[in-house]
Simulated scan of single mutants.
Amino acid sequence: MHKRNSGGIIERTSDQHRDPPGQWPERSPRGKVYLVGAGPGDPELITLKGLNCLRAADIVVYDRLVSPLLLEEAPSQAMRVFVGKGPGCHSMKQEEINALLIKYAQQGHFVVRLKGGDPFVFGRGGEEALALAHAGIPFEIVPGVSSAIAVPAYAGIPVTHRDLASSVTIVTGHQQHTNTPAAVNWEQLAKLEGTLVIMMGVETLGQISQRLLAGGLSPATPAAVIQQGTVPQQKVVTGTIENIPERAAAARIKSPAVIVIGAVVNLSDPLTWFSTTGPGSAQQGHGSAQQGDRKGRPYYTRTCQADPSYSRGDPCGRPGRGWGFFMNQLKIDS
């Protein structure tokens, strides 16, 4: 049996009410890894298959932007392992994450690799899947709701519209290993019609804006930046491609955020539907976003003590945000 908690998410009443293990999802005696998209932030946006995988997991290896409410959906005895990455600070290198997934699967465990958004949309899921394939590890991909689509929708911005945009281009604004715009031909993108969605581009928004303008994009082109989309602390700043860097800076917009450029941004005001009720949250960039879920707990925890050999706390040496996971440990022999 399941019921809805105070946050609205469907939850188990206890572990004994779970579907019998071995029926669905498929379990492998050799171990198996499910690369699961957790969605853009709101825990209710995970898919049914993703939720079922969580509820059957032995081990959950999860990212920084995964809601704690989703981690609660795993069995109480399951081990939670934090491998999150933030701007300029990684708790674990990607190669180490790959090796960790292989190690747990080789030991016969049902592993859920829980990733924000969709694993294959700037989530490095392709790299992890290749590592598993090369190691001969069985795996499945469970797509998630991408923040590239869902976050604009929660800001009242459809990325396509019959009268305004018949195409959408999704790009990354982050260059690997450097603090410069990604190796994207921004000048060429400026010539495309339709909507441009930029992921991980807040740190380089000023440079991106300059290059799009240099490519011929009209300075009056509507633009929006949405911070912490789909959660109550969502914060939206709108303007034009010319002034959006200044407006985002004035509103102290930080990662995680999605940038949307194109005529569809003008629909944000008439199509606003999502209430940002958290402390300090606001539309159009007023106030300062705070991190928390519907129960008042932080969304983005940085402390996890499960497998002592892989718990590193905050990778940047900062104190935790007041709510960590101290779960029953499952002993994993090397």
Rank of each mutant, 00 (worst) to 15 (best):
187 E>C: 06
200 M>L: 15
206 G>S: 13
214 A>Y: 10
219 P>Y: 08
152 P>E: 13
155 A>K: 08
172 T>Y: 04
183 A>I: 09
165 A>Q: 07
198 I>G: 02
179 N>E: 15
164 L>V: 09
182 A>G: 10
191 K>G: 05
187 E>Q: 15
214 A>C: 11
202 V>F: 08
219 P>D: 08
200 M>I: 09
184 V>S: 08
140 E>N: 12
178 T>W: 03
166 S>R: 15
167 S>T: 14
153 A>C: 07
142 V>L: 05
219 P>V: 08
158 P>L: 03
212 L>K: 03
188 Q>F: 12
211 R>E: 13
197 V>F: 01
151 V>I: 15
184 V>I: 15
201 G>Y: 02
194 G>M: 01
165 A>I: 05
170 I>W: 05
158 P>T: 04
140 E>M: 11
210 Q>M: 11
142 V>R: 00
173 G>R: 03
190 A>V: 07
152 P>I: 11
179 N>V: 10
192 L>G: 02
180 T>G: 01
144 G>I: 01
192 L>N: 12
222 P>A: 10
133 A>R: 13
163 D>M: 05
194 G>K: 02
136 G>D: 14
135 A>D: 03
178 T>P: 01
182 A>N: 06
150 A>W: 03
148 A>K: 06
222 P>I: 07
220 A>T: 15
178 T>M: 08
157 I>E: 00
202 V>M: 15
172 T>L: 04
186 W>C: 04
157 I>T: 00
174 H>N: 14
208 I>N: 01
179 N>C: 11
145 V>P: 06
164 L>H: 13
150 A>F: 09
174 H>L: 06
182 A>W: 08
171 V>I: 11
144 G>D: 00
131 A>T: 04
207 Q>I: 06
202 V>S: 05
178 T>V: 11
200 M>H: 10
200 M>E: 12
151 V>W: 03
173 G>C: 09
189 L>V: 11
